[in-house]
Amino acid sequence: MRHTLSVLVENEFGVLSRVASLFSARGFNIESLCVAETLDPSLSLMTIVTRGDEMIMEQITKQLNKLINVIKVTDLSEKKFVDRELVLVKVKATKTNRAEILRIVDIFRGKVVDVSLKTLSIEITGDDGKISAMIELLRPLGIREIVRTGKIAMLRAVK
């Protein structure tokens, strides 16, 4: 099963590589990893998307916690959370399909961020479902290039 982990770490050099080498050394897989500073500049937050059964997830969580620079590990998948990813897509745009592309962008509340004679570049933000739906619609039109940030995620507030 897929899990989204939120990992609070010390904002120090080498921490990213400790986390990454832990995953590779122990054969855990990383689907995506995002990292940036938090409000407190001495800390960074990593969002890691990974896969594993219960026993593997237990190991991943414990092994992360064992790293000295890791302060807190939360498996968001056990809770209610929101996640977002930002994607840039460069699509082949011809006279005939330009309008269709713009319609799709509109439906998904994307943004055109770059235009050329032959392409349109689109920015879209959303969760997994939205992003893959849009990609599936654009694919037949000819995707030239796609760049994804990987997922960031946050617990929902308790109401």
Binding site: F13, G14, S17, R18, S21, L22, A25, I68
Partner: peptide, 14 residues
């Protein structure tokens, strides 16, 4: 050496 020993130390420092 910090990179080399990362996976065989409990922790390391530069």
């Amino acid at each position: 050496i910090v990179g080399i020993t990362r996976s065989c130390t409990k922790h390391n420092y530069l």
